[in-house]
């Protein structure tokens, strides 16, 4: 029955956003107030229906959202849905890289940390993990950028692809929104390399944050399973320690990792807002901060609603998957 909770959850999120956004007044005044004479402003407000009773507006907002209509941005007159789909792909791509970085760093080091529990490697790794998630992602990004692109010159400063690469992609008709796929479509290895080198620093900045969480989690679960009879039995059979860790101890630890990985979506999305801003990665987070600067609250509302709903739905899916994998998990 818990699965049905997704409906009220989404409803509450959507309502919260609406209530907060309207508490500031109408979006037209926010975006254009001071730029237009009051009578013109009033006309626009009337045309957009922001002078109607709040409940009528709320009902319209709900029905529109459920039919996939998020309105039109005020600052650049684009359908919000188009903004969401165009830039959502970029954010998804960044999130994938970041999760990859997090897994590659977090899982093996978490295993090492758990295995050497309370000894030096554990101490060092745990401090690093805590450092990773106590560091604001924009500060980490700033330092990475300073070291690897300004001082060492190994990676480009910002963006998702260089100008030449982008033109090559346009020529190849590659416009999936996923840069790496597009780069492969051009068939030019230089473009692929270009895209990857642009992705490296943002992926690491965002991935480090998550890696710290993964490391902690894997460590905890390693300690838990290493202490169970299952491992003791294997150990008594003469299974070597390395194999013990690799083959036996980590499997039971997998489910919670999936669960937490799902829960990291919220963190990834918020991290993405700050990472994308630092590295000019043109995704949803980047657009969000752009629209915030422009005080375009229709766009802000759409992006925030989407992010909140994505988080809620992911958590819900994780619940379902966990229940499927492990029948003991009941709701």
């Amino acid at each position: 029955m818990r699965f049905l909770l997704i409906i009220p959850t989404v409803f509450i999120l959507v309502t919260t956003v609406f209530a907060l956004m309207r508490a500031t007044g109408d979006p037209i005044t926010a975006a254009l107030g001071g730029k237009l004479p009051p009578d013109q402003l009033q006309q626009l407000i009337h045309a957009a229906g922001y002078d109607r009773p709040i409940l009528v507006q709320y009902w319209e907002y709900l029905t529109n959202i459920f039919s996939g209509d998020f309105g039109t941005t005020i600052s650049d007159n684009r359908p919000v849905t188009e903004v969401l789909t165009t830039y959502g792909a970029a954010t998804l791509e960044l999130a994938c890289y970041a999760v990859l970085v997090a897994l590659v760093l977090g899982v093996p080091f978490g295993m090492v940390s758990g295995y050497f529990r309370d000894r030096l490697p554990d101490a060092v790794l745990r401090i690093l993990a805590i450092l990773a998630y106590a560091t604001p992602v924009f500060f980490a990004g700033l330092i990475l950028k300073l070291v690897f692109s300004v001082w060492l010159g190994w990676f480009p400063v910002a963006g998702r692809v260089s100008t030449d690469g982008e033109i090559a992609m346009q020529l190849a008709g590659a416009d999936s929104g996923f840069m790496l796929i597009d780069a492969f479509k051009t068939g030019d290895p230089a473009v692929v390399l270009d895209v990857l080198s642009h992705a490296a620093l943002p992926a690491i900045a965002l991935g480090l944050l998550t890696a710290g969480v993964f490391l902690r989690l894997v460590r905890t679960n390693m300690i838990g399973t290493l202490g169970t009879g299952y491992i003791d039995a294997a150990r008594s059979r003469g299974v070597k320690e390395g194999r013990l860790v690799r083959k036996h101890a980590w499997r039971p630890a997998l489910i919670p990792i999936i669960t937490v990985a799902g829960m990291q979506v919220a963190m990834l999305l918020v991290g993405a807002v700050l990472t994308e801003t630092t590295f000019e990665w043109r995704g949803l987070g980047f657009q969000l901060s752009e629209y915030l600067q422009a005080r375009d609250f229709v766009a802000v509302q759409g992006i925030v609603v989407l992010m909140a709903v994505v988080v809620a739905v992911t958590n819900f899916l994780v619940d379902v998957i966990a229940a499927l994998i492990d029948p003991r998990v009941r709701y």
Partner: peptide
Amino acid sequence: ADAIYAFPSLL
């Protein structure tokens, strides 16, 4: 509480 818990805090 569950719903609010899922709301990204920075947003």
